[in-house]
Write a protein that binds this DNA or RNA. Structure first.
Length: 437
DNA sequence: TGTAATCGAGACGAGATAGA
DNA sequence: TCTATCTCGTCTCGATTACA
């Protein structure tokens, strides 16, 4: 067990009176840390999310958590009589533990607030010129793809359950200040955790032997970094202690946030069971292809779509590119699920209702692609670089409804009631295309 | 224009090995 | 014997290149 909660500056507050809009910081605490506290601070809850709060006030009238505090209160259902412990991390903010009136620690009620404009953008693509880093993220997307049957069918991962998609989404949607990577815990990896090569290169980890992992409750865990013969770098000795000490389970998602130039790594934990319970009523979401290759605009565009697009059918999203002008790869598990290899051809329905016959080809490496006919579909629907297509398998997979989200149109709606506008976008698009034709 | 082959990189499961 | 650590082979994809 590493450095514990009690070893850092901290204070506690019992929630009384008008605590929902602002919270007074004890004056002695403020004086003690004079110069160390920032006007913009962050609160980290035990479940791993981050809330940004502004610190306002004066030495005469006292200092308060204000803007942003209200959201923290709401997200954690903080109530009168709750007991909160704030532990200063010595840098940017506080780790917060919340105890209810029954004396037990409370869990967060909802996921940290999402900001579609920033989601996905802060995950570190260490070197955008290297396709391999995109591959890593891309693979995660495929691994967590959803089928209409609600289970995953990746060949090598037959037992993965649907909650993993949710917990990964919750982790991906949370804002983090520093470069970070996201990894799913598995029993088979309880004794080590692979570090993406992008981060290894970015932080020069090859020369490092020890890092400190800080868990959500503020405990520090020294973990050795091992370099394997394959070139892979992993959290080795010490990781299993962290795994057990934080009661990690198969499917839980950890976000490793590299602070202080990677000598200290904050680990945010998203428990699969908890997130799955929250997401129970959330219908199937889309599978996104190779988001790391996208521009920031495209990412924002797609995030808006994924947050608004709901379907009971299996589906996937792809950004249109010149390299995909002649064929479009279908994720392998969806191809298997709908037996596309046997079908040889399928029907694409565009947003105008027009049908396009497209041949299905199996490439030598086993990949299934939309081939002859796809190019005509692209031209006929005026697809351009950056446009986003959602492929929804309908009629038992015998046809595919293609929803098109124009890059230009999406950009113009950014920031203004996005969800409602995106929901209406299909209709707008249908009208504009009807006019064009 | 359309299709196929190849490459590179990393995730992952399974199994081997080392050590307590 | 059990657990931790390490290695290997398989799988996946987009990009690139070659060819018809």
């Amino acid at each position: 067990m590493g450095k514990a909660f009690r070893d850092r500056a901290s204070f506690f507050k019992v929630m009384m009176g008008d605590f929902k809009t602002s919270l007074r910081i004890p004056t002695p605490f403020k004086k003690r840390l004079r110069g160390k506290l920032r006007s913009k601070s962050v609160l980290r809850s035990a479940r791993g999310g981050i809330w940004h709060v502004a610190m306002r006030g004066s030495d005469r009238d006292g200092w308060f958590f204000q803007r942003g505090w209200e959201a923290f209160v709401a997200d954690h259902a903080v109530a009168v009589g709750d007991f909160l412990v704030f532990v200063f991390d010595g840098d940017i903010g506080f780790d917060v533990k919340i105890y209810g009136k029954n004396g037990c620690e409370k869990e967060a009620v909802v996921s940290p607030k999402k900001d579609p404009s920033e989601t996905l953008v802060q995950c570190l693509p260490a070197n955008p010129n290297r396709p391999s880093t995109a591959t890593a993220e891309r693979r995660k997307q495929f691994i967590f793809g959803k089928t209409s049957s609600g289970t995953f069918q990746a060949t090598r991962r037959p037992s993965i359950k649907v909650e993993r998609e949710s917990v990964l989404e919750a982790a991906s949607s949370t804002k983090f200040i520093y470069p970070h990577f996201i990894a799913t815990c598995r029993k088979s990896r309880r004794s080590y955790m692979t570090i993406p090569m992008a981060l290894v290169r970015e932080f020069g980890l090859t020369g490092k032997q020890l890092v400190i992992l800080r868990d959500p409750v503020g405990s520090s865990w020294p973990v050795r970094i091992a370099s394997w013969r394959s070139g892979r770098m992993v959290f080795a000795t010490g990781w299993s202690d962290f795994y057990k000490g934080n009661c990690l389970e198969d499917g839980d998602v950890c976000v490793f946030e590299f602070v202080q130039n990677a000598s200290l790594i904050h680990v945010h934990i998203f428990r699969a069971k908890e997130v799955a319970a929250e997401m129970d009523q959330k219908p199937g979401e889309c599978l996104l292809l190779d988001k790391k290759r996208m521009s920031d605009d495209d990412k924002r565009n797609v995030v808006q779509i994924t947050s608004s697009f709901k379907s009971g059918h299996s589906n996937f999203i792809a950004c249109w590119r010149k390299s995909r002008s002649h064929f479009m790869t279908v994720p392998s598990y969806l191809a298997r699920e709908h037996k596309l290899k046997m079908k040889k051809q399928t029907i694409l329905h565009d947003p105008c209702g027009k049908s396009w016959q497209v041949k299905i080809r199996e490439r030598a490496d086993g990949r299934v692609v939309l081939a002859t006919g796809w190019h005509e579909f692209s031209k006929g629907n005026h697809l351009k670089e950056g446009d986003t297509c959602v492929f929804e398998f309908i009629r038992g997979g015998n046809a595919i409804q293609v929803h098109i989200y124009r890059k230009d149109e999406s950009n113009t709606t950014a920031g203004n009631g996005l969800k409602e506008e995106i929901n209406d976008q299909k209709q707008t698009l249908n009208c504009s295309l009807t006019l064009l034709s």
